[in-house]
């Protein structure tokens, strides 16, 4: 099999799978065994998506703001935590288990408590996003810092560089690819985190809207929101990839020869 042929197959396969899935969905609805208020057909969902688009947009602006504010805070906190943990060995040993434990707490369980503490405004939503995005970035940064080539550190030391310069010229840039891998995960978590927090109360946002249409049994609109959340998450992940490409030009230009 030629390589070109292989690459065409690689590109077509996921699209074909998606098309097949949507057709299957349409077929199930078309046979009439499932009532349309339980499972709306793809056509109905698309219709709802188009008619509700302006409303969903105004809600998604709120959700996106919460997600972005939470994600940015999460990034800052992660940088601070990871850097301090890397710098002080005892901190690493003390805090790492706590970090892992904090991740086993289900988001759904902690969200109502946050609402109780912080009210129905944006604060609990942002806090939840911070909690969910903070961990992947911290862990990937820590891995990045720790995977640094000790010889590169020796080289800088032999040039007379201290800790700060070693961090600036070796640790930070070498950890960038780890950081972006964590950020990609966190970016998709951020939207879901905000939506979950909105379920539990609030005035605006995709999660609030979702609860509203669910209570009205408008499942077509419900599915439309889900699709919008998927699209937003995917766009965010694309954005992370674009930033990564801009921030790491050497990966693009790199012609790999040893």
């Amino acid at each position: 099999m030629t390589r070109k042929y292989q690459s065409i197959i690689d590109k077509i396969a996921p699209v074909a799978a998606l098309v097949f899935f949507v057709l299957l969905w349409a077929a199930v609805c078309g046979f009439g065994n499932v009532p349309s208020y339980m499972l709306p057909s793809p056509a109905e969902v698309i219709k709802a998506f188009i008619s509700d688009f302006p409303v969903m947009m105004s809600h998604s602006a709120v959700t996106l703001f919460e997600a972005a504010a939470g994600l940015l805070t999460g990034i800052l906190l992660a940088f601070l935590t990871a850097t301090l943990m890397d710098r002080f060995g005892f901190l690493y040993k003390a805090v790492y288990p706590l970090l892992v434990i904090s991740q086993t707490i289900p988001t759904i369980a902690i969200a109502p408590i946050l609402v109780l503490w912080m009210g129905f405004g944006m604060a609990p939503k942002i806090a939840l996003v911070v909690l969910t995005t903070f961990f992947p970035i911290t862990v990937s940064l820590l891995d990045g810092y720790r995977s640094v080539d000790p010889d590169a550190v020796s080289l800088l030391r032999s040039m007379g560089a201290g800790r700060v310069r070693i961090f600036r010229y070796i640790k930070l840039p070498s950890s960038l690819s780890h950081f972006f891998a964590g950020l990609k995960v966190s970016a998709s978590y951020s939207v879901v985190g905000a939506v979950i927090a909105e379920w539990l109360g609030g005035f605006e946002g995709l999660g609030v809207y979702m609860t509203r249409v669910r209570k009205a049994y408008s499942f077509d609109k419900m599915f439309a929101v889900i699709i919008l959340i998927i699209i937003i998450s995917l766009l965010l992940m694309c954005l992370v990839s674009l930033i990564r490409k801009a921030a790491m030009p050497w990966e693009r230009k790199g012609v790999k020869n040893k």
Partner: peptide, 13 residues
């Protein structure tokens, strides 16, 4: 000045 065994050119510069 010390040149270590690998060339150790930093890939991101």
């Amino acid at each position: 000045s010390y040149m270590l065994q690998k060339d150790l050119l930093l890939p991101y510069m």
